[in-house]
């Protein structure tokens, strides 16, 4: 067993893990943070997306032991994030979820897309979402929610786009 120390959702955490333990399994089975969903378990579906040191990563293909000393945020840690709450409201208003299985990963990806692209067009959102699978195929609502949340969060970028067109 290896001792690891994480900052998880803002709190210091010490845990003993076997080197072969996958981060997603430690989060879900041991720490009961079941908002991180496991779909494909080999990095293809995006349901398990969390952030590690502030950037999105797939917790199903990351070893927990390699996260020693790092900062991990799961969907549970975003409850008090003002930006995520705006995105969540737009997901609600645009009917961007059906069964909800992909939603935690979609939200983690959405926040990153909006941070990097400010005011992404539809093609950009769809390209960026290619690694997040919604098996209800509810992409119309998800794309609309990300675009409308981006417009609310970055109104200056929105007007710049209008001014250029």
């Amino acid at each position: 067993m290896n001792a690891i120390c994480l900052t998880l959702n803002g709190e210091e955490l010490r845990e003993q893990v076997e080197p072969r333990e996958i981060l997603a399994d430690v989060l879900r089975d041991r720490l009961r943070l079941t908002g991180t969903h496991l779909g494909c378990e080999h990095g293809a579906c995006g349901a398990c997306t969390v952030t590690i040191d502030g950037v999105p990563a797939r917790s199903c293909i990351v070893l927990a032991v390699m996260c020693d000393g790092k900062t991990v945020e799961t969907i549970e840690g975003t409850r008090t994030d003002d930006i995520m709450n705006v995105i969540r409201r737009h997901f609600h208003e645009q009917h961007a979820l059906q069964c909800g299985f992909c939603t935690p990963g979609m939200l983690m990806a959405a926040r990153d897309i909006i941070a990097r692209h400010q005011q992404p067009d539809e093609a950009t959102v769809r390209r960026e979402l290619s690694g997040q699978v919604c098996r209800c195929t509810g992409y119309m609502g998800i794309v609309a929610a990300i675009q409308s949340a981006a417009a609310e969060l970055h109104p200056a970028a929105a007007s710049a786009v209008c001014a250029n067109s």
Partner: peptide, 9 residues
């Protein structure tokens, strides 16, 4: 290459 979350790592 793959997806952004993979490219980050």
């Amino acid at each position: 290459i793959a997806y952004r979350a993979v490219r980050n790592m």
